[in-house]
Design a protein around this nucleic acid. Sequence first.
DNA 1: AAATAATTTTAGGTTGCCCTAAAAGCCTTA
DNA 2: TAAGGCTTTTAGGGCAACCTAAAATTATTT
Lengths: 220, 220
Amino acid sequence: MLSSTEENYLKAIYNISERESGSVTTNNIAQVMQTKAASVTDMIKKLADKELVDYAKYRGVSLTEKGRGLATQLIRKHRLWETFLVDKLGFDWDEVHELAEELEHIRSDELINRLDQFLGQPKFDPHGDPIPNASGRFTIRQQTQLSDLKPGEKGEVVAVHHHDDALLRHLAEIGIELKTNLEVLELHAYDQSIQVRLGTGKVLQINPGLAQKLFIRRSN
Amino acid sequence: MLSSTEENYLKAIYNISERESGSVTTNNIAQVMQTKAASVTDMIKKLADKELVDYAKYRGVSLTEKGRGLATQLIRKHRLWETFLVDKLGFDWDEVHELAEELEHIRSDELINRLDQFLGQPKFDPHGDPIPNASGRFTIRQQTQLSDLKPGEKGEVVAVHHHDDALLRHLAEIGIELKTNLEVLELHAYDQSIQVRLGTGKVLQINPGLAQKLFIRRSN
DNA sequence: AAATAATTTTAGGTTGCCCTAAAAGCCTTA
DNA sequence: TAAGGCTTTTAGGGCAACCTAAAATTATTT
Ligand SMILES: [Mn+2]
Ligand SMILES: [Mn+2]
Ligand SMILES: [Mn+2]
Ligand SMILES: [Mn+2]
């Protein structure tokens, strides 16, 4: 039985290792967990004792199979709760992350499987992130960063990277949400910004930072 | 901001003072919280510092207005989550108490108010217990213990006392749930048992312990 | 290859919630 | 009303998760 804190560390390690290659460093975890390196070392030892991470002093950690499995289940719970909050309770997509951070620690397989059924076994959460199934398998989807599209290419917004509430609110404001269709009109060499036309006809300048955080499925 | 533990103590004190008159004793709380008297004394001091209980050494505690308000909100959350689990996720009434014990500590007024809306602002939980509204007011209902009915009296089961899962399963097995209609046929002086006929026609012998835990609204 | 800089670990301490054992206070009953 | 028996509090610790400061190790620069 893991504490909520242990679960959060596992998830942090999982997320870091998804976006960076090699082993995960103490400082890296400290930053994500908003804590101090010394505290991370304490916790790493505990997780290593429980065989959830492989750990070599001064060399960082990586998840074991067991650790990765638990992290995946936690992500499943997080994303299912987010889906519940948006689809059933009518929250906006920028309001659900913190709540899901608490709800994900409710410990009951029965609960999460019933919730999954109730929601119609969704494959993606309100931010377009894939929801692993009960065996921990993710649905793979073809997607590209908006910043990689060439002028003339069209597509549909399928995910946003990631849980920055201000970003999500901004997107909603300028008219971008999941399933929004768009076409790249021009790339401006001067500031790397991208001009796009939305399905609604609205034309927008998207700055490069934002364009990296929007994931598109090409549609032609 | 209260910890889950502090919230649970408040709820325990609230529940004890509902069923017993006078101030709530340390041992009483220790028994409900499954902990030791010394631990209770520690916590009582903390709650007294926060002005959630009135405390006089060796004299027990009682909730302040503020403490009672928080306890009531916790009970609201508990009962709304139980209602969600039964009505929306299809759990049986004997399966939801422990889960609600965890869910009730999720801290968000917005969440609980949306959940309330989603459930249709229910007035009673799956065990027939009243759900306080956002201002902490309970719906009052006329009800009598089955053990107080006289032969010939009829009524409807409106609540069961309380969260003993085995009791709830037993009731379901013998055909008693909320809204079950019944009529008292006979009282047996020998063992104080009560013979009742359910709406279905089924005739049962109910022992006096159980009869005290069934709440009935008279219907004639 | 040193020297310096950065990272990581260790040492020692705090807080919240729990414990056992002993002391203190309250209550009953002779 | 005084003793004995409960109940409650205090004293002194343990454990999880955090902290700061110092030491150890690794990485980078000269
Ligand atoms: Mn999230
Ligand atoms: Mn998400
Ligand atoms: Mn309950
Ligand atoms: Mn209930």
